[in-house]
Design a protein around this nucleic acid. Structure first.
Lengths: 215, 215, 215, 215
DNA sequence: AATGAATGAGCATTCATTCAT
DNA sequence: TATGAATGAATGCTCATTCAT
């Protein structure tokens, strides 16, 4: 696999601070604090003061590590999507059978989604608040994940002669379907728990894709 | 079918204006203007001034028809979801065969979704900004739509002895799947047009549900 | 007694309306409504809309009879002080013995004060909101009342040779003392009722003024 | 004398500022500026901008020290009444003879009133604009001052066997009488100066209270 | 004469960002 | 580097007054 953007969540945002290590540490601290407030109040209603308090850092210092409130959103997305992405890759990279790899990848995707519920919910609704350049970069990362699924599907199609009409479209839908339990949780909880939802998607979305013998 | 909330999109929000007809007209004008700005800037970044200008009404007059910025969001959702809902119902109510009804209902749902792309995109990301009471009311309307699908599925199951494990969960997923083309348009366009996306969903989501003979 | 301003509470404020009778009626209606709202909310927090509603008149019509919110305050004061003033005069004008006249006048003043508690409380705190010219005119009316008391005291002094150093200052204090029970009601009620407060003032303020034999 | 509320004018109003010393300084500066504008325009017509300008502080900074316009009023009253109160107490606390103490206390009260004319004039008319809780607290402080006079009168009555029917009512009237020169200044100035007014009240209000031999 | 809808300047308050220490 | 006080433009909302009908 060729090198991808997704391999590194760190981004160049100019700061007054020299030590890169310090920058990384503090930014980690900042987005951790930020997310804890974002979850409750959303991006717009969260003030930079709120974030500084939650991150246990002074207002002035905060602005030594970022240049604007928007940067916080950007850094959050980078780290978040990178994590999301890495988990799926790392758990499946070594699996040679593409059918098996698809199953594990989709299952992992579902698990990660449930593990990062708050982040996903927040991410879905607030992405539009990033400025153009940042948004594009984040979008690119997500497209890479979809592409990862497409590659698996392509392999299945060519190796097993399975009939999948459009692997790109299918990959897109698969990734979309994986957030069903999260984005609809207001309608699904508490009636259904995580396991039931994972099972439902594994049984319907994958089974429909693969010949009965395989699934 | 018993009476539902969804039968009436008008809601009592006290105003300073006495003529109900005028209220309805102006509110229509307001949300039309509001949406045109919301689309570009999102709810929070849109100022009430922006809305007044877009709706071609003065600030003072605007507040004669609503009581707060939040009300605009609320009225928008009520009208939007009601339209959404009504179209599906009105086009399928008369179809007695439940399989046929399901097909037409889902197809209509997809068409409406594409017709209301902007509204849906906006609606998905900004719902959380409504105040508690309003949010609940809007949520209720959406649940009624899901229930409408569940009822059709129940009928199919009992009349045709089709194996659908959980009709409620399935109905939820069906409604969710219908927004795929909209919520992922940044990844799907311009490669796929509306027809292709509608076909994909009709072919995968419905076909998987019904025995081959029926679909 | 020469003609005084206080003889007529009506004032020339230009209006669009021709019939003077109608003007008088409507203004009566307006200040009645206005006072009922002023009592609860004070002048500034009362909106013209509030007044229109309370006076059972339309916004547009209201402005046919007055020219500004300030006018309402002005008309209120004119009527209020005139009433206040007239009662004291009319009950005492015929009493020839000045000592007796003083007693009845002060007693009447006290009674009127308690009868118009709300008006007085409102009047004291909101007078400053009238515009300069109006304020002066109203002030003039009150000075006439003080003068009325000074005249009685002058007569007592000359006829009975009672030692009252400065009749003008004394008259001022007498009128001031009469509002004690009203302006301090937050500290006096419910411990003291109207009768106790009237007795206290009659016994202290008048008795101290007049030789024991007279009071 | 037991501890009283009046011992401390500082009140807990949460702020964004951490240094208490700075808070005290700036608040002093704010109410000084505020009063200078309030005097001319009254509470309602004074904008927060006016206050910021008069206090030589930026709008944003102003709100770092208070939370609402109402708070300014509240802080003003606390400081004002505390000053008022403290002066009377501190000048008389050491005087053992209660008759002497009464004389000095009343005289001091009169002097303080004249020294704080603007504050009193403003205070009387705008108290109603404080919110409920604040108003009660301020009221309590004033009641303590009245109580201070009542205690002196009680002592005089018991020690000297002077006939004062109701010491509480008398104390109330004494405190009320002390603002005569201020609240009626529009009718009294420029004819009477401060000394004449102080003399008048000392001579009438106290002399009437005490047996001739004492006053 | 009466009505009530329309207007827009004005207000209290917030908050991202800067900067002196 | 770190701190937190200072800044002021921007925002949601109000309300006295006007005006078309």
């Amino acid at each position: 696999m060729q090198s991808r953007q997704g391999d590194n969540p760190k981004t160049y945002i100019p700061t007054k601070i020299k030590s890169q290590e310090l920058i990384d540490d503090k930014r980690q601290q900042i987005i951790k604090g930020a997310l804890s407030v974002f979850k409750k109040k959303g991006y717009h209603k969260t003030t930079v003061r709120d974030i500084a308090v939650a991150a246990n850092i002074s207002m002035g210092s905060l602005y030594d590590y970022i240049n604007s409130k928007d940067d916080i959103l950007y850094i959050f997305y980078k780290v978040f999507i990178f994590t999301y992405y890495q988990q799926v890759i790392s758990k499946t990279n070594a699996i040679s059978n593409p059918v098996e790899r698809l199953k594990v990848a989709y299952k992992t995707l579902l698990e990660v989604n449930f593990a990062l519920e708050d982040e996903i919910l927040f991410g879905w609704t607030e992405a539009k608040n990033m400025k153009e350049g940042h948004l594009q970069e984040v979008t690119k990362l997500e497209l890479e994940l979809i592409d990862y699924f497409r590659e698996i599907l392509d392999k299945i199609r060519s190796e097993f002669n399975v009939d999948i009409e459009d692997t790109n479209l299918t990959a897109n839908f698969l990734v979309y379907s994986a957030t069903f339990g999260i984005l609809r949780r207001w309608a699904l909880r508490p009636r259904y728990n995580k396991e039931q939802l994972v099972d439902y998607l594994m049984n319907t979305q994958l089974k429909n894709l693969l010949p009965t013998a395989m699934s």
